[in-house]
Amino acid sequence: MDIGNADSWGAAIYFWLIPMVLADAVFPLVPSEMVVITGGALSADGRANVFLVGLVAAFSSWIGDVVVFQLFKRRLSHVLDRWSWGRKLHQGMHHAIEKAGRSSTYGAIIGVRFIPGGRLATSAAAGIADVTTRSFYLCAGIGALLWAVWLVGLGYFTGTATGLPFWASSLIGVAVGLVIGAVVGMIATRRRGNRSPVEEPESDPSPS
């Protein structure tokens, strides 16, 4: 595939979206935001369907969140600690959860996904905190839709406003998204607690 050819990307963007957005639910370093923004920029260039890009991104995001939620609802953290690689992954999740805070409220499930690592943090925390399945599915669906609309819209707007090639519009959109995400992250983490809900509470000594 010619990465500079808009026609090549337009044909392949739907297939890139699904694995990238799914993987981002577990590995926050996967640049799913860039792929979604690129889909929006390609839509502005007439190379992709903006509504289909948004729907694919939202559905993939929701599925990824549901998988993480169900795994932690079934106490995956205890299974991970059996292996050294699992403990490293567990520790990485600690850091992501600590960055986003420990709240598993419905507002957090919807909104914290806009912070880097927020999807993993809130989905894992909600599973551990035994948020009801129906409530999580609904909030994750709303959050996934808003997340997709925001990123696709960002790519579409930069592509329409700048008139630059799709890859340049994508880079501008990513830069704007990173700045806004960093600001939101600083505000959110200052207002939220730092204790990770993955940590098992220490048992209180029994009264003598």
Score class of each variant (00 low, 15 high):
P116T: 12
P116S: 13
P116A: 10
G117R: 08
G117W: 10
G118F: 09
G118H: 09
G118M: 06
G118E: 05
G118N: 05
R119T: 13
R119E: 02
R119L: 02
R119M: 06
R119A: 11
L120R: 08
L120K: 08
L120P: 06
L120W: 09
L120M: 14
L120A: 14
A121R: 11
A121T: 11
A121C: 11
A121G: 13
T122Y: 04
T122I: 15
T122R: 09
T122W: 10
S123A: 15
S123P: 09
S123E: 08
S123R: 03
S123F: 04
A124G: 09
A124H: 07
A124T: 15
A124V: 15
A125L: 08
A125Y: 08
A125H: 12
A125Q: 09
A125E: 11
A125C: 07
A125G: 15
A125T: 15
A125F: 11
A126H: 05
A126D: 09
A126G: 06
A126Q: 04
G127E: 03
G127L: 06
G127T: 02
G127H: 11
G127W: 06
G127A: 06
I128N: 03
I128A: 07
I128H: 12
A129T: 13
A129N: 15
A129K: 14
A129E: 15
A129M: 13
D130I: 05
D130K: 15
D130G: 12
V131K: 03
V131Y: 03
V131W: 02
T132S: 14
T132I: 00
T132C: 03
T133F: 11
T133H: 11
T133W: 10
T133C: 01
R134S: 14
R134F: 12
R134A: 12
R134Q: 12
R134T: 13
S135L: 06
S135V: 10
F136L: 09
F136T: 09
F136M: 08
F136R: 10
F136Q: 04
F136S: 03
Y137E: 06
L138Y: 07
L138D: 03
L138N: 02
L138P: 05
C139E: 04
A140P: 05
A140N: 13
G141L: 01
G141D: 06
G141K: 09
G141Q: 04
G141N: 05
I142W: 01
I142Y: 01
I142D: 02
G143V: 00
G143S: 03
A144L: 01
A144Y: 00
L145I: 11
L146R: 00
L146K: 00
L146M: 07
L146N: 00
L146P: 00
W147G: 03
W147K: 04
A148F: 04
A148K: 00
V149Q: 02
V149H: 02
W150R: 00
W150P: 00
W150C: 00
L151A: 07
V152K: 05
G153H: 04
L154M: 15
L154P: 06
L154V: 13
L154N: 11
L154I: 07
G155D: 10
G155H: 05
G155L: 08
Y156K: 07
Y156R: 06
F157P: 01
F157I: 14
